[in-house]
Design a protein around this nucleic acid. Structure first.
Lengths: 247, 247
DNA sequence: TTAGTAATAATTGTCAACAATTTGCGGCTT
DNA sequence: AAGCCGCAAATTGTTGACAATTATTACTAA
């Protein structure tokens, strides 16, 4: 039988050896752990932007050898969270105005397509679930009026669900495998307080209604505006051009 | 000074040690070579789809150790040319109908944005250069009426130049770093003969004229149709659902 | 004969040492 | 005194051996 396509998957072990099904998370390799921890450290700013990363230091810190660390760094490089030059070493990426602008443009394009596809084929049940989710968001905003919880997780949920509804693995992969890590990093490191939860929620509702009406054009248009609006809010918080801060 | 952003770059060595500038390609590491060769082997079908890849075999074949091979495979995994399951091994990706359909959808979105940005800011000089390029293409089609040279390279040139004109590194990276490898692979392995050079050239001209008129909407629309048209041509050449052919 | 189980082979994951390359410092020449 | 050259330190690239895990095979029992 053919192998599951494209994306990395954890597989069940049905071999007769033990008769048990291994826990999905049990077989995480050391490189996985290092990758996960480093990713979080970078995103939340524990590792400063532009700071140098040496395999040896990290190996000492994590307690295991350079091999897994090496692999973790390569994976982070693929995720564009670190920059590497061949024999010279690796550094944490530096978020520049230009870079984030480009990224939001790409995101606008992909999220727009995501909304279009969702409008095309999202089931009534899923739409109803998403409506309920937005109601929860509204409640949370009302309750915890000062926390940034919503923006970090709630927003994620909405966009993620729309992408899932698009039923396009590539779209999901690109939006939430690569771009989103940098978006999160940017949010973490610009301002800690919530930005515009009420506006965002309203826009989410409009997008969802367009999807519910299967209006592809409108769903795409609204989603694009939603993203570019978010960019306009974040833009002024980023440094225009940096002079020094590596190391 | 800040580190060059996002993408991996080869850097000059200006150290006083030798006084020379090392050749850019000289310091290619073994993993680089292995990656390059494997990539080509996969794309042109020398390694069959779904065939198993073992680090040890490749190491023996290439003549060096498992380390670099391992890294090359991971990079190919990032490029979605191989699929890997944690402890079990890696296989060459299997091009499925679903996967390519999803990919062309993403490509439609990104190429559309690419054309839009090009229409927004492409310089008159660049536009004129691109016109000249299309004239060359026309000539080549007229001359070598049976070769697929045009479709492979000429098409690449046009799309690549448009993406460059967008001036968005992410766009270029996604379109030509990741997606395009699979598009190439798909072209190589479906049919060897040219598909629709004349139609494609005409559409390229229309897109370019929209760009020249700075008509963002039209440029995006035409590019989208161009991509989805290309998909309609390739679609029937792909197997709907495969039963067996791994190993 | 067939299902289940244990042993075995094959393959990936990890490690520590070695080689190649780059960077930084100090001495030498002019 | 200034600039170039060369050596030493640091860091990545590579290697081969070993450990952990998975897939396969042979065997036993119902």
């Amino acid at each position: 039988m053919p192998i599951p396509i494209i994306f990395r998957m954890i597989v069940y072990n049905m071999s007769a050896t033990t008769g048990t099904i291994h826990e999905l998370e049990s077989q995480r390799t050391m490189a996985d752990k290092a990758y996960e921890q480093l990713k979080n450290a970078i995103i939340r700013g524990d590792l400063a932007q532009g700071s140098k990363i040496t395999e040896e230091d990290l190996a000492a810190e994590f307690g295991f050898s350079r091999g897994p660390i090496r692999e973790a760094i390569r994976r982070l490089e693929g995720m564009k969270l670190v920059v590497r030059v061949p024999h010279a070493g690796a550094r944490v990426v530096t978020l520049s105005h230009q870079m984030m602008s480009d990224l939001y443009t790409v995101r606008e394009s992909l999220e727009g397509m995501s909304a279009r596809l969702a409008a095309r084929s999202m089931s009534k049940e899923k739409i109803e679930e998403l409506r309920a989710l937005l109601d929860q968001h509204e409640q949370k905003i009302a309750e915890a009026d000062g926390k940034n919880y919503f923006q970090s997780e709630g927003d994620f949920d909405f966009h993620y669900r729309v992408a899932q509804a698009s039923n396009n693995e590539w779209l999901i992969q690109h939006l939430f495998g690569e771009l989103y890590q940098l978006v999160r990093m940017c949010r973490y490191q610009t301002a800690k307080r919530p930005r515009r939860p009420v506006t965002a929620l309203m826009e989410h509702r409009q997008i969802l209604e367009a999807i519910a009406r299967h209006d592809e054009e409108l769903a795409e248009l609204l989603m694009r505006r939603h993203i570019s609006g978010a960019w306009e809010v974040i833009k002024p918080l980023l440094p225009r051009e940096e002079k020094e801060n590596h190391d």
